[in-house]
Amino acid sequence: MTKSTSRLNDILEKNEKEILDDWMREQLASGTLRKDLITESELRKQSAELLGLIINATRSGNVTEISGTEWKPVLDFLAATSKTRAAQGFSPVETATFIFSMKQPIFTRLKKEAGSNASVLADEIWVATVLTDKLGLFTAETYQKSREEIIRRQQMELLELSTPVIRIWEGILVLPLIGTLDSSRTQIVMETLLQNIVDTNSGIAIIDITGVPAVDTLVAQHLIKTVSAARLMGAQCIISGIRPQIAQTMVHLGVAFGDVVTKASLADALKYAFRQSGITVT
């Protein structure tokens, strides 16, 4: 419906230079520009490129349906820009302002072109608003997605980092656990420990929970599962690093580790493991 009537492309093309200048001024004045993250010339280059792409896209006559193929270059460019901005540490507002600050310069030109014809002006402004809003929302969404991507990646890294299995002696493994144990983490802990038991042919595994902030019934159950699985494979597990506070909470909650050997410190557990495997330290 807006295809034939809108003069947006005309106006943009005719005033490209002025709009870019105004837009730059607008961005610099908005106070959300991060001079520490992006230089003015870089920003100008980005803005000019985007404006050029938008003019190209509007030339087709389709000015508001950004899902069309003619808008693909614009969306690709915006996606790339917001991704880099997300990675560089721009805030969502700063990223969105990049697009929204384009409104004012365009509106000014529209006003000039439409002259006193209020209904044409209103129509044109509406078209321009819809367009900039769509582009802005797209930018914000991509920004959000890239941030989530970063968070997900960091979570994965954290999981990998948080479950080291150390071969402390021949036939003795130590698994120091740090942080809260939840189901997904227990799964990884269990798999890593069992695989390591097979790989190193170890008969004893010490699970040290000094770094686990709280032991509730769920955590205890997770630990017991891990211990049972290791036992089925033929390895004995010792749980060490139980702090006085945790021992008290466990008793109050009625949590029991059953017949699993538990020790207060890693040193005690190691001593026990040595005795079990017939190693004497002098």
Binding site: M190, E191, L194, Q195, I197, V198, N201, S202, G203, K225, S228, A229, A230, R231, L232, M233, G234, A235
Partner: peptide, 21 residues
Amino acid sequence: PAVAITIVELGLSMQNVRTAL
């Protein structure tokens, strides 16, 4: 390992079975 995890998840305790590596 996968078999051990399955047995534990199935809730079979197998307490009376001795195991070795």
